[in-house]
Design a protein around this nucleic acid. Structure first.
Lengths: 246, 246
DNA sequence: TTTGAGTTGTGTAAAAAATACACAGTATTT
DNA sequence: AAATACTGTGTATTTTTTACACAACTCAAA
């Protein structure tokens, strides 16, 4: 096979300069990072999209992405994009998958590393003055530029799996939240309804919620208690595994 | 930020040729695929390694990888590497993560997409005549070339999670297997002991195992029954999800 | 042929977790 | 003052998970 840097002949040790020649001259591919930025508002899971800046996709929305600089770490590129677009750093960010279809980008071979991030829309609202940048209901999206619909779907599926096994939901909420808000996050991400009493029982039993002795404000009904999530306690007590279940 | 292909100024539509110029001239990075090939033998989880063909890492073992050709799909590159090294196609293969540290490769910026695959060592034994290619106990590995130890660790952790939620274990076994062999796979991957009767009960209750009415041969003790895994039945009946659990 | 080693195959009782389910009380709006 | 929309709480039932023991079988070695 052409361009192999490993062979199965014993004792074929390549020099570094030979490899360098290969790396420099032959197999170079453009690399981008795309961020699926999730938020939660109006009891719906949202994703932040921008109008495509490519003529070919004019009118379509796309994820927030950028080329990776050759001197830039992947995670740093994702963090940079987030910071540029939302003004936020210190957000939950996780690599999802790398998408490398040959013809996914009209400009040539561009492979992209997808990340998703979870942000608290309230903290962020100020930043979207730009009317080419908008929050969209995840479930209303049918078409996006490039292969971004596929990237969104994959990220959403990963979020659905992860949110059940890790305390991600809190990243979509303010530091103080009511149990109803928390349940709404789960119900919208997982697209299901849960029993309110059992939901409460479950979270109280976990014992990671801190009752901060405050009540909701400005709700048009009886206000509920507010809680924090205690990440420290979680880190100490989190369980290792579960069992075989498929 | 330099090289941005998205801006937050409304109505900035880039032409395709402008983007093409960027992609061609600036942000090009070499791309490779590395495969973590897991096997199961002697009641241990194994990984297939090759002696590094780079002088800098002479003596160290490394994962099986190669540069991706600009005209090659990522999955195809992984499949190709597997076919080259093991002679097998039609194996379980899954993308794990992309590793992009700036200085991970001595030849310059090379980012690598890691895959893991699960193969049945028996089917494969013939192919390793090459004494630079060897199966190693996963748990005995302390150092590898490049950042391959980190890639292995990440892949192994992902395998541990996945094997509990998906029927992967069967890919490490022959089509016909005994329940003890199956339990040994789980115990070695998860590095734990399980109760034999409860293990059996669980798998029989799932109802995906087919009793093929054959017995183990050539075992130095009372032979057990052999089973197949019924993937069709699994695909039809697999559960959607579980619940909040962390 | 006997014995020891190493395994197979099987069931039940107890504990833990998940589920289903109803009503009185409180803040807000009209 | 009435309507709305939520809060907060407990129990009984079902399901799942866990812990645990023994007789029978095959092979290999004495």
């Amino acid at each position: 096979m052409a361009n192999s840097n490993h062979t199965n002949q014993a004792a074929t040790i390549k020099t570094l300069s030979a490899i360098q020649t290969e790396v420099k001259n032959i197999n170079r591919i453009a690399l981008s990072v795309d961020c699926v930025i999730f938020g939660f508002d109006e009891n719906k899971l949202k994703v932040l999209l921008i109008r495509s800046d490519l003529k070919k996709f004019q009118g379509l929305w796309s994820l927030l992405g950028d080329l990776v600089d050759p001197k830039e770490e992947l995670d740093s590129a994702a963090t940079r994009i987030l910071k540029q677009r939302t003004g936020l750093d210190d957000v939950y960010l996780e690599q999802v998958k790398t998408f490398g279809c040959i013809d996914r980008h009209p400009a040539g071979r561009v492979i992209t590393v997808a990340y998703y991030s979870l942000i608290n829309i309230q903290h962020h609202k100020l930043q979207i003055l730009d009317n080419e940048l908008h929050w969209h209901d995840v479930n209303d999206i049918t078409e996006l530029a490039f292969d971004h619909k596929q990237i969104l779907d994959t990220s959403y599926e990963q979020l659905q799996r992860r949110v059940q096994e890790h305390p991600l939901a809190f990243s979509l909420l303010p530091k103080k939240f009511s149990l109803r808000e928390l349940q709404n996050v789960y119900e919208s991400i997982l697209d299901t309804k849960m029993d309110r009493r059992n939901f409460r029982k479950k979270f109280f039993a976990m014992d990671f919620l801190v009752d901060i002795d405050q009540m909701e404000q400005d709700v048009p009904h009886r206000p509920g208690k507010l809680y924090n999530f205690n990440y420290n306690k979680y880190e100490k007590k989190k369980k290792k595994w579960v069992g075989i279940d498929f």
